[in-house]
Computed example of a mutant assay.
Amino acid sequence: MPTTASPFTDIVRSRRSVRKFLPDPLSPSEIRGVLEDAQAAPSNCNTQPWTVHVVSGAARDALSKELLQADEEERFSYDFTFDYADFGDGAYLDRAHNHAATVYQAMGIPRSDRAARKAAARENLDFYGAPHVALLFMPVFGDGVRAAGDIGMYAQNFLLSLTARGFDGIPQTMLGFYADTIREFLGVPEELKLLFGISFGTADPAAPANSFRMGRVPLEHSVVLHETPGVLDEQ
């Protein structure tokens, strides 16, 4: 069996989350190709629990307007909770804080400038200028964890397919803060819950927000080996 790096390895390790896009849309065939790749994701008992709404053009602009208005009026509607306090006081919170600091530093926004930070966060609601956004909805089976895991695998296929085709995307938890607004706009039934969205298109190469890459912790921080010697000795 081959042990050298493959094109797949290059794709996985070059994927990044983009926070400023060019306005150029993907072609219908390009979007379909990404969706077909995503559809190949595994799922528990082959339930394939994803319902995906892809929004572009005038509908994309109108949805952004609705989201920005909902944010102005503080009309938050979460299908799933989100609170930094839930990360605890250890490594997870430290990583979240480091992520925020890296993003804002790249954008030239100091920690003390709360107004600029809020404005930067609101760019989520204009999909960072991307021409397309995919909203990922799921049914809730039991506690919802297994379906959410399936959606995560679908989303990873989606993101890697974009990278393989020369495009970019960003998964956005913040879009899930306005689930009712999005459901009403798209005509989605209440029983389908919004986990997150993915804005996608072509990265703006000149944008400061795209000038960095987030690191990952060393393997030994995440992996425990049992009778699998030598793996963590490799450099």
Rank of each mutant, 00 (worst) to 15 (best):
F8D: 07
S14I: 05
V18F: 02
L26K: 12
I31G: 04
E36T: 14
D37Y: 10
D37M: 12
A38M: 11
T47V: 08
P49F: 04
V52A: 08
V52Q: 12
V54P: 06
A58M: 00
A62T: 11
E66M: 01
E66G: 00
L67E: 03
E72C: 06
F76E: 08
T81M: 10
F82W: 15
G90Q: 10
Y92K: 10
A96E: 08
A100M: 09
V103A: 12
V103S: 12
V103M: 11
M107R: 14
G108I: 03
S112D: 15
R114H: 15
A115I: 10
A116P: 04
A119H: 15
A121D: 08
E123Y: 01
Y128H: 10
V133K: 03
V133T: 10
G142A: 05
V145G: 09
A148I: 05
I151S: 02
G152E: 01
M153A: 12
Y154G: 01
A155I: 04
Q156E: 13
N157W: 01
F158V: 06
T163K: 05
F167T: 12
Q172Y: 04
R183E: 09
R183I: 07
R183P: 07
E184P: 00
L186S: 11
V188M: 09
E190T: 07
L192H: 11
L195W: 02
I198F: 00
G201Y: 01
T202W: 02
D204K: 00
A206Q: 15
A209D: 01
V217T: 14
L219G: 14
E220N: 08
S222V: 15
V223P: 05
V224T: 13
V224P: 00
L225Y: 09
E227V: 03
L232D: 10
